[in-house]
């Protein structure tokens, strides 16, 4: 009924200290971790093919650079607030520790703690012999009969008390019953008086301040807490696992469910679906679905949207996560055409280039679209074909007169990564064949090459370069070796609102029915070192002599297989499609057979 | 709101969505077929009358083909197909209608290919694949059409799928090699 309040200010500092530490320690740890790892990832971004990143910055329009700067500033503002809180929090902690240390009341309470080792003046790890010898020495000093006669009664009683304590200390370390008491209650005499109370000073609870405190609690428990919980709950409920709004996801699912196979899947179709996204409506409630569609087409056709330019940039930035969400749903519905067109749409938005037979060339900077159709007698559609011509001729084909611009365009064109398949197989870790009902994965060895590089047949890369590590670690986790590769560098995307590095999406299709069998695997780690090599197809004359396989870096891609291998023995055919989300051209598309044997 | 015209016996929904429009067309077609049916004891058995008409037109086409009159043959086959689309009622056995159409389409494909109408042939082949015909000869023709239309990437996808369903097919293998060569050239 009646509580003791913290009159002497002994307990509330500990309470506040505990609460602060619970918040500050993980927050500080998180912040330090981000600082350390954030620095590291920037480092790898800088190592890899920085040409694309540099060019991307160079060719980006003023509005895009402003947009990027704004979003970086927003992020750092929040970080500054967090940092401020951490600094303020630790300052309060330091003050509290100092307060506790200097508070007499707390010190007094602390001295009531019974410490036998301190009383006997020995270390906590002393043996029984040392304990006994220490006791004998001290009892000689403090025994009432041994005390000097000159001491005052006060001094005497103090020393006698000390002697009692020393005896108790000795007993609590040696005598069974006393030791039990000490271990159980922290004192040899058994349970001491304990007090329970409220760790708050009385004035907060008893007087007029109490109404404020009650109001504070009511506000906290009745208003603030439910508000935050309901806001968090509705946020979680409204977003799917892939990070898109549930209404957008259900719209996409509905479109896929009602999809008629006679309908041709085009860029316009995907853009139309995209413009119905709930995220857009929430960002710009005053704009219509048709406006969103127009803005997306503006982005693809590199058209300025007037006073809706900023809206366009925000929508384009958001469409990245929406397209990945749609891709996930499309693969769940096993629809290959929509899956591939979704990735192509992302390319179109990232490069601001429409899907046409000439997309590979139109994604380059400084290209004059008219000259592509008129500039040359041969119909050139691919980067690979482009590099069969001399630089000057390329300038004519692309319609670039300025030599500096031509050099920049050529450096971008030769830095766009293309994947060349060297080896592909189904692998079961630890086995030499794929056995029935085993769990295989798809192991690809690829070469990241430039369109400028001369073609060479995959068998010119010796088998030794394509072997995986054969140790126990790699059998336990076959995918760990892919993580040793560097992250992808910045994409050349001067028309995209944010800096990005993108990825490759790997789709697996069952050849029997032509349908996708699992959700896409995203590949965001590959070495681009080969792109720096000057193995120009126009200058290499003798392939056998000039090609040195050991100078090339082999990329490692591992795609998990979502089902166990079939029960029956035989050959089963799968189509593997690896599409880039960033550039037109560097995709892989091949058939792989799974030989299931005993 | 559903509207019914007692004279034409047709249903209508103003401002209907695409899906509702489709349903309406289906119902109305069924109604028209029923109204036009003279035999009160009709069955799914295909009407011999229609079969005869369609067959006549088609055989006309085959004759013209033998006489090397390709353009006319194509026209006749088109007429035969159109006749089937118009005359066949919705309740006549699906299996029969499907086979009839597929058979005529296969001939149409070959006639188109011979005359260099590759896009037409491709669409017909797409139709055949979509309606369940996944035999090697479909893959062979589709690969060939795609190559002629310079769509080498799609041609590769088709020929590889064809080979995975029929790995020993010689013609498909030849097409695969040829397409790979053209693709390499396409990519410089």
């Amino acid at each position: 009924q009646s509580y003791d309040y913290d009159e002497a200010s002994e307990t509330w500092p500990f309470f506040i200290l505990a609460v602060l530490c619970v918040v500050l320690v993980p927050l500080t740890a998180m912040q330090l971790w981000e600082l350390v790892s954030g620095g590291k990832s920037d480092q790898t971004l800088n190592d890899q093919a920085s040409i694309l990143g540099e060019m991307s910055e160079k060719y980006a329009s003023r509005e895009i650079l402003e947009f990027r700067a704004k979003s970086v500033a927003k992020k750092s503002k929040w970080l500054a607030k967090r940092n401020l809180f951490i600094i303020a929090g630790w300052t309060v902690v330091a003050y509290l520790i100092q307060y506790i240390g200097s508070s007499e009341g707390i010190q007094d309470a602390a001295t009531l703690l019974f410490d036998p080792y301190a009383l006997l003046d020995i270390s906590a790890s002393s043996t029984d012999r040392e304990v006994r010898s220490a006791y004998r020495k001290l009892s000689v000093k403090f025994h009432p009969d041994k005390l000097s006669k000159d001491l005052s009664s006060e001094q005497r009683s103090v020393l006698e008390e000390q002697y009692v304590l020393i005896t108790k200390a000795y007993k609590s370390l040696t005598d069974e019953i006393t030791r039990e008491n000490y271990l159980k209650y922290g004192h040899p005499d058994g349970p001491q008086a304990t007090s329970h109370g409220i760790a708050l000073p009385k004035f907060l609870v008893d007087s007029s301040a109490s109404t404020l405190v009650i109001l504070g609690y009511v506000a906290l428990l009745g208003i603030v807490l439910p508000y935050f919980v309901s806001r968090w709950w509705s946020r979680t409920q409204s977003v799917t696992k892939k990070g898109i709004h549930v209404k957008s996801a259900s719209y996409f699912s509905n479109r896929l469910f009602n999809f008629k196979p006679s309908q041709v899947v085009t860029l316009d179709l995907i853009v139309n679906w995209l413009s119905h996204a709930e995220e857009f409506k929430l960002m710009f409630p005053e704009l219509s679905v048709e406006t969103f569609e127009t803005l997306l087409h503006d982005q693809i056709n590199r058209k300025h949207s007037g006073n809706l330019e900023n809206a366009k940039l925000r929508i384009v930035a958001k469409s990245n996560v929406l397209l990945f969400g749609l891709l996930d749903i499309a693969t769940t519905f096993r629809n290959l055409e929509i899956s591939t067109m979704t990735i192509d749409t992302l390319k179109a938005i990232v490069q601001a280039t429409s899907i046409s037979p000439y997309s590979q060339l139109l994604q380059l900077p400084n290209v004059n679209p008219e000259s592509l159709t008129e500039g040359s007698v041969d119909d050139i559609r691919t980067l690979g074909k482009l590099f069969t011509y001399e630089d000057a001729k390329i300038g004519k084909i692309l319609g670039i007169d300025d030599s500096t611009k031509l050099q920049e365009t050529l450096s971008v064109a030769s830095s766009i990564p293309h994947l060349k398949l060297i080896r592909a197989e189904f692998k079961v870790p630890g086995e030499s064949v794929v056995t029935p009902q085993s769990t295989p994965h798809i192991s690809l060895k690829v070469l990241v090459r430039s369109a400028k590089h001369k073609f060479f047949p995959p068998n010119m890369i010796p088998d030794e370069m394509c072997l995986d590590r054969d140790d126990f670690e790699s059998m336990k986790d076959p995918f760990a070796s892919t993580l040793e590769q560097p992250r992808l560098p910045q994409t050349f995307a001067p028309y995209f609102p944010g800096k990005r590095s993108g990825c490759w999406c790997a789709l697996v299709v069952l050849q029997k029915d032509g349908k996708v069998i699992q959700t896409p695997m995203l590949i965001d780690r590959l070495s681009f070192e080969n792109l720096n090599k000057d193995f120009d197809k126009r200058t290499v004359k003798n392939l056998e002599e000039e090609f040195k396989p050991e100078e090339w870096v082999i990329g490692n891609i591992k795609i998990p297989f979502s089902q166990p291998a079939p029960e029956e023995k035989g050959d089963f055919f799968f189509r593997v499609i690896v599409k880039s989300t960033e550039y037109f051209g560097p995709d892989l598309d091949f058939t792989l057979s799974m030989a299931v044997r005993d | 709101t559903l509207q019914y015209d007692a004279n034409s016996k047709l249903l209508d929904v103003p401002d209907a969505s695409e899906d509702i429009e489709m349903n309406l067309t289906q119902i109305n077609k069924l109604t028209q077929d029923l109204v036009g049916e003279t035999n009160p004891n009709f069955t799914p058995q295909p009407r011999d009358e229609s079969t005869a008409m369609i067959k006549k037109l088609f055989e006309n086409g085959l004759k013209q083909l033998q006489q090397q009159k390709m353009a006319e043959a194509l026209k006749s086959v088109n007429l035969a197909i159109e006749m089937a689309q118009r005359k066949r009622a919705s309740w006549e056995a699906f299996a029969v209608q499907l086979q009839e159409l597929q058979f005529m389409m296969k001939n149409r494909v070959d006639l188109c290919l011979v005359q260099g109408k590759f896009m037409d042939a491709l669409q017909d082949l797409d139709f055949l694949q979509n309606t369940g015909l996944t035999t090697s000869d479909v893959f062979i023709r589709k690969t060939d059409s795609l190559m002629k239309l310079k769509q080498y990437e799609q041609a590769r996808a088709e020929v590889e799928r064809g080979l995975s369903l029929d790995p020993t097919n010689a013609k498909l293998r030849v097409l695969h090699i040829e397409n790979t060569r053209r693709l390499a050239e396409y990519n410089g």
């Binding site: 196979p261 085009t266 | 077609k29 896009m119 669409q123 017909d124």
Partner: peptide, 22 residues
């Protein structure tokens, strides 16, 4: 049968779309 008819009738539209694309 109606679905088959619809798919057949879509051929013309598909031809247009692909011609434009390519």
């Amino acid at each position: 049968n109606q679905a088959l008819k619809r798919r057949f009738q879509a051929i013309l539209l598909r031809k247009e779309v692909f011609s434009k694309q390519w």
